[in-house]
């Protein structure tokens, strides 16, 4: 017992102050919301669109970034001959509507007011949200950075949010992966096992749009092809802070 107490002091108190204090520091090379400098972007160049692996930047939809498809990889910025693309430190990416993730390429924050649950649902789930996680063709990165929220540093349960072992205990699903053909039925059955009202949170580019796997006949185009989605959290994988920010804004714990 003594050794555990000594170790406990050595390891220190680690739970972050956020959201009451500042958010944890992000790495200086963190790739948050991408931004195109319109003064530098040359019309008709298309180098970034050719380099984009998922069509988040596409000639078919000029002027917009689809953050639901974006892998937040460095390819477009590296391909731009005019250094017009940069990555902001803006980690707040979650949105209630899929359409809200299609954003103008120049700097503009997502309308974060739309991230909160409304009325009865917020009253019901705002202080206690139990989630069943379903990986449906995910590569285990989104799963890992969702799971990390349960560690002492993030301590997700202080917000009343927990991952639970059965859909029967859950208020909602947190889905990762593009929904492989082989997981579509299991995902649907898990959703059906939730009691109503129920919500679905899609974490990562795959769960939102199919991500890097979009177009493969072995996968779908994300969670919404099987279940209705209430919150989209972009990234590949999203930083834990992005996921936490999305969850806290969903339950109305933060509003800025």
């Amino acid at each position: 017992m003594i050794q555990e107490i000594v170790a406990r002091f050595q390891q220190k108190h680690r739970t972050m102050r956020y959201p009451d204090g500042a958010p944890p520091p992000l790495p200086d090379r963190f790739r948050g919301r991408p931004v195109v400098d319109p003064a530098r972007c040359v019309t008709g160049c298309h180098a970034c669109e050719a380099a984009c692996p998922t069509g988040a930047l596409s000639a078919a939809s000029p002027g917009v970034f689809d953050l639901g498809k974006c892998l937040f990889c460095p390819a477009c910025a590296a391909a731009c001959p005019h250094q017009a693309i940069s990555w902001s430190a803006n980690y707040q990416l979650a949105a209630r509507e899929r359409a809200d993730l299609v954003v103008p390429r120049e700097r503009e924050a997502i309308d974060i007011k739309r991230a909160a649950l409304d009325g009865a649902l917020r009253k019901l789930l705002g202080r206690s949200l139990k989630l069943r996680q379903v990986s449906a063709g995910g590569c285990n990165a989104c799963e890992a950075d969702s799971n990390v929220l349960t560690t002492v540093g993030w301590d997700l349960s202080r917000f009343g949010i927990q991952f639970v072992a059965s859909p029967r205990h859950a208020d909602g699903l947190l889905v990762t992966g593009p929904v492989s053909q082989n997981m579509a039925l299991a995902l649907k059955k898990t959703y059906d096992a939730l009691s109503e009202p129920r919500i679905v949170i899609a974490v990562g580019a795959c769960a939102i749009s199919g991500g890097v796997f979009a177009g493969s006949p072995e996968v779908g185009d994300g969670a919404s092809s099987v279940v209705p989605v209430d919150l989209y959290i972009p990234g590949c994988p999203p930083h834990p802070l992005t996921i936490l920010d999305g969850l806290l804004r969903l339950i109305g714990r933060i509003s800025t």
């Binding site: 063709g137 992966g177 593009p178 492989s180 493969s216 006949p217 072995e218 996968v219």
Partner: peptide, 10 residues
């Protein structure tokens, strides 16, 4: 096989 995404074909 539940996580099969067809990467080798891709």
């Amino acid at each position: 096989g539940y996580q099969h995404r067809g990467i080798e074909e891709m």
